[in-house]
């Protein structure tokens, strides 16, 4: 799975951050962050569509707000997981903005995965079947 997540987080070169990305890959840090991303997106969307499932919380901005909350959590997961793991490798941390970039990429992917999850599972939701946008 590390090989599955690596190209995603490196954006097929677009988000590749040289040694920082290499360190994440070599130390398999993509794995917990990626799994957290996938599972939290799926779980949060299941909660949105089947547990909350509310006629007054089914507009696109409700979805956006809810997903933004999950995305923020995933930003924090990416930031702190990478920061903690890399700190174990070096006596003096050579990276600074890279943690934010990695967090932002995870933030972005939360929206993408949540949107994918939405379009897969929303059909069976009674009150949110057209959220965030009708087909």
């Amino acid at each position: 799975m590390n090989d599955f997540f690596a190209p995603l987080y490196e954006g097929w070169g677009l988000f590749y951050l040289n040694t920082f990305s290499d360190d994440l890959y070599n130390n398999q840090i993509y794995l917990p962050v990626g799994w957290t991303l996938l599972l939290s997106s799926l779980l949060s969307m299941a909660v949105f569509y089947y547990v909350i499932n509310h006629p007054r919380f089914n507009r696109w901005y409700h979805w956006l707000l809810f997903t933004a909350l999950i995305a923020l959590i995933n930003f924090a997961v990416a930031y702190f997981t990478s920061h903690n793991e890399i700190n174990l490798l070096y006596e003096e941390d050579p990276y600074n903005t890279q943690y934010y970039t990695f967090g932002l990429v995870n933030f972005l992917y939360t929206f993408i995965f949540s949107a994918i999850c939405s379009f897969v599972i929303r059909w069976w939701s009674i009150n949110s079947a057209t959220t965030p946008i009708p087909q």
Binding site: N58, I126, N127, A129, T130
Partner: peptide, 13 residues
Amino acid sequence: INKQPWSDRKQPK
């Protein structure tokens, strides 16, 4: 209208 699935989930809307 246009804010609930009963309105716009499927055709006819």
